[in-house]
Amino acid sequence: MLRDGNEVGQMMKVVGEEGTPTADFVKYLKAEFLDSVYLQQNTFDPIDSACGAERQEYMFDKLLTVLDKSFDFEDKGKARSYFQNLRQEFIDWNYTPWDSIDFHEAEKKIDALLAQA
């Protein structure tokens, strides 16, 4: 049964991180990741503030590959680290102009990271 990222978050408050299976924990990390890189947006940055429909679609597709991917982490610490790195790459990607060289460079980094896990 698919558990809601939020539900996992709530459960963790009760049973603690050590009482949470790694698979559920990854679900929680995925939810936080979606929030940090997609739901949140920097209205004060000239690039991140204006995300046109085209870019949204492109980004979202990439995001879905992350959300759908099944990961196999040794432990929760490694899972957390991985997602922090992935988040960092996505955030940097958000600040590159659409379809520019920097944009594609940043995308390559993300793809590489995804290929590793």
Binding site: N6, L34, E57
Partner: peptide, 16 residues
């Protein structure tokens, strides 16, 4: 802006 199926899918993960 995104196909409904994908957003419904992503909603499963959405914390907030």
């Amino acid at each position: 802006s995104i196909a409904r199926k994908s957003t419904a899918h992503a909603r499963c993960f959405a914390t907030e």
